[in-house]
Each structure stands twice: as structure tokens, then as C-alpha cells.
Design a protein around this nucleic acid. Structure first.
Lengths: 189, 189
DNA sequence: CGTGCACTTGATTGAAGTCAAGCGCTGTGG
DNA sequence: CCACAGCGCTTGACTTCAATCAAGTGCACG
């Protein structure tokens, strides 16, 4: 748990021990209770979270007031409202702990500071962006090519954590189907 | 036209003239005729294209054999089968010129070479990734929150080039609606 | 122990897809 | 230069998948 973040970093990039120490000194630990909302829309300045245990959910509200889940982050994953992180626009997204959760976070300004002083850090950001892009594109393609049943099966196969650990209504909002439809899908298959 | 690529680069990053020369020396020009397919699925090694004039379309085939359009790239934009570029997996995507088109392209291996020898190049890649991510996420959210009519209206407002310059069937496949539905939408609004 | 929220199940509705037919442009070869 | 073949687009009739509406069950938590 205390080693999880440094191990993650060392797995992604080659970095000297002093530089690693510098990087870690910018991260702060935080403990969150189940269902706690840690980021509301429009909050500045912004943080990037690294999940040590538990799970974060990123979601936003549709015009009709329904929750639309954009991402789940489990142990050993980074998470943030990435679009507003990139564009600097006001974020419309919430970040919420679904289980009791331990995270480390870094302020956006410190993150940019690291980009300046630790050349390797640029590479870690690149990895994060690449991963986020690939994940997003796969999800986009699943909406285009798959119906509700197939999307559910794919999620079960590729990310069983979501189906097993998250409440049905959040799984449904991630698949962009109604809670009722998900319930019917589960009872059949 | 000949200045378009260097101008684009200088707009995104600060780079010395000799370095810029080096970068440009890796790019090669190519002319494409309307409807020409320049990349087929599975092709290696891979290229990144910069559109000088005309338009490229990136699409793939669904199981049913229908074309699903993933991206349009117009003048002054980069385009590639980015997921397979990142993951190294075999690409399922086609790249096609929709109009008579002029591009510059760079081989993937040369692109990585530039990342090594020109430190600023990492920043340009970062910009490209960030732009691709934001675009993709916006499109993803439009599928989640908007119906067919609203998606069409948004596309018309945000990227009129697509509606005006592309054939209906391709616009429809980009919006993920049937050609018939798009035709009905246009006749109403 | 009770209240409310998550989930299930059934009935009905609706948005968009599919199937089908016909029109009209465009470009190609005689 | 014209003719006609084929593709792109439109329009209409019907179908379908999943949403919505509605009611009821059961578990979790104060």
C-alpha cells in the first residue's frame, strides 16, 4: 500500500531514486468514506488522484438530472476530471468514493511543476494520456458497434470489477442503459 | 501550403530553426485522389498524416459489414490510426481521402526517433494526445446525453465542414445514425 | 423496528432502424 | 455528345430494442 505508488511509477518510467523522492514528496495521502463526494463541478484548483485501495467514480449530470458515469478507477490507477485538466475549462464532473477509499493526490500546479523539473515525468503523463485515450476510444466503439446485451457482456469480460463491486444503477449509467434493462440482462445471462 | 506544417509546429511548441529543419526533413509529401484508400487494416509500419489540403477519413467495418466513421481530418490537422499507434496492436482502421488531398506523412519509427532527439517533440505529441482525448470524450458524451436530432445539430454547430463537405452516408456513420434518419433530420431542420 | 433506497418485474411507449421502392445526378464508354 | 448504369439520396411502411411508467419486494442502515 505505501509502496503502491512508487512501484507504479517505477514500472512506467525509469527514474533515479532522488528524483523519485522528489516526485513522491508532492503527493499527499487522503482517506475517504464510502459514498463521499470529494470533487464537485467547478472546483479549482484541481487534483489528480492515485487510488491505493477502494474505488473512485467520475460522473456528471445530464440535462434531465440523471447521473452519467464517465469512469471508474480502482486500485493502482490514476483518475481526474481529465478534460478540464487539459483545457482549463470549468469541470462539470463529480469525483466520488464508492467504497472506503485511500488515495494519494497531487495538485495540478505541482503536477506541471514536476513536468518542468523531472524530464521523465513527461513520459508518465504521456502514458496516462495514452491509456486514457485508448480506454475512451474502446468505450466509444462499444457504443457504436454493440447493443445493450453485448456491451454488458464485454464489460463483464474486460472489467469484472465494475459489475461485481459497483451498485447496479452505477453500472447501468456506465453502460448507458436504464437500471431496469440491466436488471433484465442479469437475470437472463 | 508549403508553410502550413512548419507554421503549425511553431504555433504549438517553441523550437529552434535547426531543430525545425530536422523535424521537417522527416516528413514526406503525398498527393491523393478523391476516394483513394491510403491505409488498409493491418498495415505495418504505420504513418502519421498531416493534412495540407482536402480531407482524410478514418473508419472501420462493423461485424455487419457497415462502415463506422471514427474521425475526419481537414486542413491543418494530424490524423492516424491512433489506438494501434499507441498499443502496437494490429489496426482495424482504414484511412481514406474523401476529396483530392495533399498530405505530409512521417513514419512511426521516425516519429519515435524525433521524440528521442528533439526534446520539444514530446510536447507536440502531448498536444496531439490531449486534443485527441478531448475530442473523443466530447463525442462519447454526445452519444450518452444527446439523441439523433441533437447530435446532428451539435455537429452542424461545432464542425460544419463535416456536414457540408462530406457525403451524407459518411456523416450518418459518424453520427452513428442511419442514412435514412439523417435524410429525415435534414428535411425537417 | 421502521423507513427509504436499490432492485425486480410487468405493461406500454417511442425513437430510430430496417426493408422497400423510386428519383436523380454523375461519370463513363460507345 | 448522348445514353444508360450505378450509386447516393429521399420517402413511406413496418419493426424492434430499450426507455419509461408503475407497482411491488427486500435489504441496509439509522
Amino acid at each position: 500500500m505505501y509502496k503502491l505508488l512508487p512501484d507504479y511509477i517505477k514500472e512506467k518510467i525509469t527514474i533515479s531514486d532522488p528524483d523519485l523522492e522528489t516526485v513522491l514528496s508532492y503527493f499527499k495521502p487522503q482517506k475517504l468514506k464510502k459514498n463521499e463526494i470529494l470533487v464537485n463541478p467547478g472546483e479549482k484548483p484541481q487534483r489528480i488522484y492515485f487510488v491505493v485501495s477502494g474505488c473512485l467514480r467520475i460522473f456528471f449530470l445530464t440535462e434531465g438530472g440523471a447521473e452519467a458515469t464517465r469512469h471508474f478507477a480502482f486500485e493502482n490507477q490514476f483518475a481526474t476530471a481529465l478534460v478540464s485538466f487539459i483545457t482549463g475549462e470549468i469541470s462539470k464532473e463529480y469525483v466520488q468514493a464508492i467504497e472506503d477509499t485511500e488515495v494519494y493526490f497531487i495538485w495540478q500546479s505541482d503536477f506541471y511543476e514536476l513536468l518542468k523539473i523531472i524530464p521523465q515525468w513527461e513520459k508518465l503523463y504521456r502514458h496516462y494520456l495514452e491509456y486514457a485515450y485508448v480506454t475512451n476510444t474502446n468505450r466509444l466503439m462499444s457504443f457504436i458497434t454493440l447493443d445493450a446485451t453485448e456491451r454488458y457482456r464485454q464489460l463483464l469480460a474486460q472489467n469484472p470489477n465494475v459489475v461485481m463491486r459497483m451498485p447496479n444503477k452505477m453500472v447501468a449509467s456506465y453502460l448507458n442503459i436504464s437500471q431496469e434493462t440491466l436488471s433484465r440482462l442479469k437475470s437472463k445471462a
